[in-house]
Design a binder for these strands. Sequence first.
DNA 1: ATGAGTGCAAAGTGTTTGCAACTAT
DNA 2: ATAGTTGCAAACACTTTGCACTCAT
Lengths: 146, 146
Amino acid sequence: MTAGTGNDVVAKVAAALRNNGDRMTASRRAVVEVLLHEPGHMSAEQVAAAAAHVHRSSVYRALETLTGLGFVQHVHLGHGSTAYHLISHTGPHLHAQCRSCGTVYDLPGPLLDAVARRLDQELGFHLEAHHVALSGTCADCTTRAA
Amino acid sequence: MTAGTGNDVVAKVAAALRNNGDRMTASRRAVVEVLLHEPGHMSAEQVAAAAAHVHRSSVYRALETLTGLGFVQHVHLGHGSTAYHLISHTGPHLHAQCRSCGTVYDLPGPLLDAVARRLDQELGFHLEAHHVALSGTCADCTTRAA
DNA sequence: ATGAGTGCAAAGTGTTTGCAACTAT
DNA sequence: ATAGTTGCAAACACTTTGCACTCAT
């Protein structure tokens, strides 16, 4: 796997934190471990639920800190919710969410590369395609609706 | 223009409403007129502010009704906010929002057509590209940051 | 007349913040 | 020792909802 063992990641996070004048705490370790043991994307609420003794606000703060250090990435989904995941855990990829059932699908990372180039050339807009989930209707829901 | 005069649109909305067993009310007319007289995308709050005597909740309800009738479209932006506009007002287009300054840029409607085809073929996912704003950093903010 | 629509106030999400107590360094 | 972190509660932004009243039809 690309992520190494859980202990590896925890150790790397600890090192990065201290390197930055920050501290490795039980809350931050718990958040990392939750993200590590979950396959996909999680909402802050899911993380808080899985890290039972860590307060919601500390979960948000830990996720923010870990994002700043480059370990965590978040995606904005529809309806104002946000999903988080370890960057090392799954590799670079984009997201699409079904408008009907809410399922989040992973898409190949380079899917929007051509579009990104075009936006860059024509508008000087630097696309961060992973940062929002594309929206649409998934195959299951299309079938179900028919 | 593609939209005809404001009166045209108001009349079409009234007809569509009655056709549907719904009613044309002062609130709904006010919301349509606000959207008609504004160039770009508006948040529900901006609509409420511009339609001074219409209550916020009625603005939301009117926007929902008008969406159902196919006159209004909304885009999800970052941070859980939503922008609305008349479909007839500007023609089909996509949106990109600068992560740094929040500005929303209009993009050519067909920009993601190739991607949409690919998603459809490979996953059966039917992309609705206009429904969320792409995210990134605009030229101004890139310059400013450098 | 009568049911759809409105204003209001209250509840509901998801997220952030001020502050005193706590703890990793 | 001492600054970074936490838990808590309260505030936030945005949106939805229950209800009695009003108004378009």
